[in-house]
Amino acid sequence: MTGELELQDVTVRYGDTVAVDGLTATLGDGQIHGLLGRNGSGKTSLLSVAAGFRRASGGEVLLDGQQVFENPGAVRRMCCIRGAGDTVEHDWPGDKVTHALELAATLRPRWDRGWADRLTQRFNLPLRTRLGELSRGQRAALGVVLGLASRAPVTIFDETYLGMDAPSRYAFYEELLADQVEHPRTFILSTHHIEEVASLFETVLIIDDGRLMVHEEADALRARGAAVTGPAEAVDAFTADLDVLATTRLGPTRSDTVYGELDDHHRRDARERGLQLDPVPLQDLFVHLTEATDRAHTHSATAPGGRP
């Protein structure tokens, strides 16, 4: 019940603005993929194209080899929840939580009504409340229910759970993981709560300025980052040939965040120099990587001969 999603040279333009710039990636079936990127990096545009909500300006999206856009066989297998999900909301008597769930039950071929009921109870969603009267957190929880209970082979959550409180978010992660074991499907999670959800990710995509910056197995990506801490001179010598993303100093002590795999030789060298090597949380790695890109942009914009 899973699906492999191929993004082939996907480009999204809004007039002169390029939101996604020739992005190519394959999202393996039955995995949980984390899509990370700063605000305005092109995440939502990319996911909209992936789900067939928008036609790509260039390139194409394939689900198990079939084009997604305007293909009933493909779009029926996708569920993309943007924000709190797409529901009719005019605050009319017919626009209640229960009606949004009934609509999904009618239209989603794999809708799990029993699980939807349990999720609704777990997130304390008031069924008889009008959609317009829900709090931000409740609306987000409704989006989560619509996405999870759809059991769509490719389920996408685009910043859906931003408004949920911590217990609700943890309940969401728990439900998602438990269901993934029982009924594997392809999940794509776009989030700003990186560290909180990082343990769920099997692969991580980081996009910046519409371009794919990193696409790796989550464990491999974590192994690529390390914090090197010790006397400033020793750290300086150790990281001289490494890709340093960030540096912090406290008196004579310095800590460099480096990006790149450290082999046994490096680790032995660090021990001999009295340096401490620590893993870098995914969120820190994301911050340093995207900041490094920003710095590179700034540098190229201000450097003599650099193109603005």
Binding site: P72, R76, L107
Partner: peptide, 16 residues
């Protein structure tokens, strides 16, 4: 303006 986007979001094509 309302139902077409809703049904597209629920996994139906524009044509159908």
């Amino acid at each position: 303006a309302v139902y077409l986007p809703l049904y597209i979001a629920h996994g139906f094509t524009r044509r159908e």
